[in-house]
Simulated scan of single mutants.
Amino acid sequence: MKETPYELLEDDQKKKHGKNNEAKMTLYNALPRKEYARVFMCKTAKEVWHTLIITHQGNSQVKNCKIDRLTQEYEKFSISSEETIDTGFTRFNAIVTSLKSLDPDYSSKNHVRKFLRALPLKWRAKVMAIKEAKD
């Protein structure tokens, strides 16, 4: 496809061209150098965005496999007695956040209960005592 010089474009085409460049620059400025190197040859902002989605989420088959793996991790999630609550919560939050990013319909109900059930028994008793003291 032959490219038309900017000077010969119609006003609406120039406006679209300007909006596309603005969107591309916004995306480029938000990306780390490694990601920029991956997309800098894209001609449109849509192409940049699509490349990033495929790179980080994969196609639908890869995406579904990731969702299945994360769902399994969520269901099996537990915190060992040697692990701190902070590190356990960080792991739990990473699973939930990843699920939400891959599946917009993913429900975030009952995460608090799931996290509390994942705590070792000795910690659960302490958490419940604190909760009762507040009520």
Rank of each mutant, 00 (worst) to 15 (best):
Lys2Gly: 14
Glu3Asn: 12
Thr4Val: 14
Pro5Asp: 15
Pro5Thr: 15
Tyr6Ala: 14
Tyr6Pro: 13
Glu7His: 12
Leu8Thr: 09
Asp12Ser: 15
Asp12Trp: 14
Gln13Phe: 11
His17Arg: 14
His17Ile: 13
Gly18His: 05
Gly18Leu: 04
Lys19Gly: 02
Glu22Leu: 01
Lys24Phe: 06
Met25Cys: 08
Thr26Gln: 02
Leu27Gly: 02
Asn29Leu: 10
Leu31Lys: 05
Pro32Val: 00
Arg33Glu: 11
Tyr36Arg: 12
Tyr36Leu: 14
Ala37Glu: 15
Val39Arg: 06
Cys42Trp: 04
Cys42Ser: 03
Lys43Met: 09
Thr44Cys: 04
Thr44Ala: 02
Thr44Ile: 03
Glu47Gln: 07
His50Ile: 11
Leu52Asn: 00
Ile53His: 02
Thr55Met: 02
Gln57Arg: 10
Gly58Phe: 01
Asn64Trp: 12
Asn64Val: 10
Cys65Tyr: 13
Cys65Lys: 13
Ile67Thr: 12
Ile67Trp: 12
Asp68Ile: 09
Arg69Lys: 14
Arg69Val: 04
Arg69Thr: 05
Leu70Tyr: 13
Thr71Phe: 09
Thr71Asp: 15
Gln72Ala: 12
Glu73Ser: 07
Glu75Val: 03
Glu75Met: 05
Phe77Gln: 10
Phe77Glu: 08
Ile79Lys: 00
Glu82Leu: 10
Glu83Leu: 05
Ile85Cys: 00
Thr87Asn: 01
Gly88Ser: 03
Phe89Ile: 06
Phe89Trp: 06
Phe89Arg: 09
Phe89Lys: 06
Thr90Trp: 03
Arg91Ala: 04
Phe92Cys: 02
Ala94Glu: 14
Ala94Ser: 14
Ile95Pro: 04
Ile95Arg: 04
Val96Lys: 04
Ser98Gly: 01
Lys100Leu: 15
Leu102Glu: 01
Leu102Ala: 01
Asp103Ala: 07
Pro104Lys: 09
Ser107Arg: 09
Ser107Gly: 11
Ser108Ile: 13
Asn110Gln: 15
His111Trp: 15
Val112Leu: 06
Val112Met: 05
Phe115Ser: 00
Leu116Tyr: 08
Pro120Arg: 05
Pro120Leu: 06
Trp123Asn: 00
Trp123Met: 03
Trp123Asp: 02
Arg124Thr: 08
Arg124Gln: 15
Arg124Ser: 09
Ala125Leu: 13
Met128Arg: 12
Ala129Leu: 09
Ile130Asn: 12
Ile130Pro: 08
Lys131Pro: 11
Lys131Arg: 15
Lys131Asp: 13
Glu132His: 03
Asp135Cys: 07
Asp135Val: 10
